[in-house]
Amino acid sequence: MIKTMQRSLLALSLMFAGSALADQVQVAVAANFSAPMQAIAAEFEKSSGHKVVTSVGATGQFYAQIKNGAPFEVFLAADDTTPAKLESEGDSVPGSRFTYAVGSLALWSPKAGYVDSEGAVLKANQFKHLSIANPKTAPYGLAATQVLEKLGLTQAVAGKLVEGQNIAQAHQFVASGNAELGFVALSQVYKDGKISEGSAWLVPAELHEPIRQDALLLNKGKDNAAAKALLDYLRGEQAATIIRAYGYQL
């Protein structure tokens, strides 16, 4: 009886020790990185025992929320300027910022053959609506406006733009048929080396500023082992394999 009780107490102590080692991390994730982050979080949780809680949205909106005291501990932005700004303003752990992915922009339609491989459909201007993300808060939206400017199409398509709050909503406008085509993150329509559905033009990188996406350990996560472990995991080869599979560069 005593030995049985001792074994039970030992099992309970090990269980509580395990739970003490495990932790939870609150992560603000740029909308373009939602799908790869789901895959990364699942693998990270398996290997570490930590729990990842994600919020998905626009980088600019997350900046405002962080400044207003949101409980995020890790920030995965869609640019490098917003994390750099938070860093300079003292909202993050010094030296924690790094580029976890370099994004690509695509002009996409769910309709096969609608978007040609050179993007000539833009200059033809036969569509009624063109979806983009809000360029003031979403770096992929800003990149889309830079492409239109470089191609001399800003004025020609101005009355046809349908603007999403973030890149997820911009993609949804196209997927739902509210816009015939739109500028989206390549990661939203790309998997395992190919466009997952419809047709797309992979926008040449020289048509917009590089979309370097930086990660940051925020002050609220400075003492959280799970937050630090997640950022370490993001730098590793397992995460890199997932990130590349969604069309990002490293």
Rank of each mutant, 00 (worst) to 15 (best):
V102C: 02
T241Q: 14
A70D: 10
G60E: 11
F183H: 05
D192Y: 01
L161A: 06
F98N: 09
L148E: 08
G60A: 10
W201K: 03
A101L: 07
G198S: 09
A28W: 04
L217M: 08
Q65A: 14
V74A: 07
K85H: 09
V102A: 13
G57D: 11
A35Q: 13
A215G: 13
F173K: 04
K123P: 06
V27D: 04
Q155F: 06
I40Q: 02
L153G: 06
E209A: 14
A31V: 04
V53M: 11
I195E: 08
E118S: 12
S55G: 03
H208Q: 09
L107R: 06
H50Y: 07
A175H: 08
N134M: 07
A240D: 14
Q61L: 13
S13C: 12
L250T: 07
A124F: 03
G164I: 11
E197C: 00
S131G: 08
A138K: 01
F127N: 05
E197A: 14
K3V: 13
T241H: 08
T82A: 04
M5A: 15
V203L: 04
D23A: 15
A20F: 14
T99H: 02
L12H: 04
N125Q: 10
L9Q: 11
Q24R: 15
L122H: 06
Q24W: 02
I243L: 10
S47E: 15
A138P: 00
P210C: 09
Q249M: 07
P204M: 03
A144H: 03
E149D: 15
L250Y: 11
Y233L: 05
E209F: 00
I243R: 02
S196A: 15
E149K: 13
K150Y: 03
F72V: 00
N219M: 05
D232K: 12
E118W: 00
G221V: 10
G60T: 07
Q61D: 15
V147R: 00
Q249A: 14
L148I: 14
F33R: 05
D116M: 01
P36E: 08
M15K: 00
E163N: 11
Q213N: 12
R244L: 10
Q213F: 04
Y248P: 00
W108H: 12
V27H: 02
V203F: 03
A158V: 11
T54C: 09
G193H: 04
E237F: 01
Q165S: 12
A225N: 13
V184C: 03
N125R: 05
S96Q: 01
R7F: 12
E87H: 02
F16D: 02
T241P: 05
G141L: 08
L186R: 13
K123W: 01
V25Q: 07
G193L: 06
K228Q: 14
S131C: 10
V25P: 08
E197L: 07
V162G: 03
G18N: 09
A41G: 10
L148V: 13
M1N: 10
L231F: 05
M1Q: 09
R244C: 01
A205S: 14
G182Y: 10
L218F: 06
A229D: 15
A158C: 09
I242D: 09
P94C: 12
L161G: 09
S196P: 00
V56Y: 12
